[in-house]
């Protein structure tokens, strides 16, 4: 199976390991990630205002390319996924205003949100299947207590993202179970880490991140996993005693790629 792949700015720089692990694991599971050509940064945040057009065009361009190839557009970074998926749904639901103007701004095209946008986790759950992953596990996590951290970007707005129940998601927990680990349930898994506020108000980000890691620790976590480089930055910086890693690292370990 081949999917179009949008790595995003951070996976090419600070989060190279996330990119490498994701590609390697996909190969083992029979999926090739085809990086789309000339992709540009998604901008990191979807601007909800209806008169914002230019800020969404890089996402539209990526969607058009995936659509031409007839492949789903896959991302690993939560932020890219959020921006691209929200843009795609806006193209679909707003054909006269947003989609028309976006098409006018780009090469003559008539794209109206037909492409499928999936996150790497959805690839694992829906396209590969957790049963198949279970078969490929060579080093099970052996009861490792994993707190899965979703943050906000993967889940909300839930009507658009529609990945899982936004208040009690289990897509990562079910993956952990498939890898032989033991998911830890904690309520802060879908609370915001502070995100970009870290840039100008580090203390605010600290308060939010600590609440999350404290909640995960109180529920007995050995490790916290995330899909987002910015969550990773905030949580890692403000969490003591418990490591914070990308979910792909656990996957790579279980599949025997990484020591």
């Amino acid at each position: 199976m081949k999917v179009s792949y949008f790595p995003g700015c951070t996976l090419k720089t600070k989060a190279k390991d996330l990119d490498e692990q994701a590609r390697a694991c996909a190969e083992i599971l029979g999926v090739t990630l085809e990086e789309i050509s000339n992709w540009q940064c998604c901008g990191g945040a979807f601007t909800t205002a209806s008169d914002e057009i230019a800020t969404k065009l890089s996402s539209v361009r990526a969607l058009m390319e995936a659509n031409k190839k007839g492949q789903p557009l896959l991302t690993v970074c939560s932020a890219c996924h959020n921006v691209i998926k929200q843009t795609n749904v806006a193209m679909k639901e707003n054909p006269d205003n947003f989609a028309f103007r976006a098409n006018m701004n780009l090469a003559p095209d008539n794209y109206n949100g037909e492409a499928e946008v999936i996150h790497y986790l959805e690839l694992l759950r829906d396209k590969v299947g957790y049963d198949k992953i279970k078969e490929k596990v060579v080093k099970p996590l052996e009861g490792l207590k994993v707190a899965c951290y979703y943050g906000c970007l993967l889940l909300r707005p839930s009507k658009v993202m529609a990945m899982d129940d936004a208040e009690n998601p289990t897509i990562m927990e079910d993956l952990v179970k498939a890898l032989g680990g033991e998911p830890v349930y904690y309520a802060y898994k879908n609370e915001c880490c502070g995100g970009y506020i870290a840039l100008e108000d580090a203390e605010s980000a600290m308060k939010k991140s600590q609440k999350i890691s404290n909640n995960a620790k109180a529920q007995g976590a050995d490790v916290i996993i995330t899909a987002c480089p910015l969550c990773m930055y905030n949580l890692k910086k403000h969490t003591k005693d418990v490591p914070v890693i990308y979910f792909t690292e656990l996957l790579a370990k279980a599949l025997g790629i990484k020591e």
């Binding site: 904690y186 309520a187 802060y188 609370e191 404290n214 909640n215 109180a218 529920q219």
Partner: peptide
């Protein structure tokens, strides 16, 4: 807005 179990308490 939010209830979170922490240990044997509910926040």
């Amino acid at each position: 807005g939010k209830i979170s179990p922490e240990g044997d308490k509910l926040m």
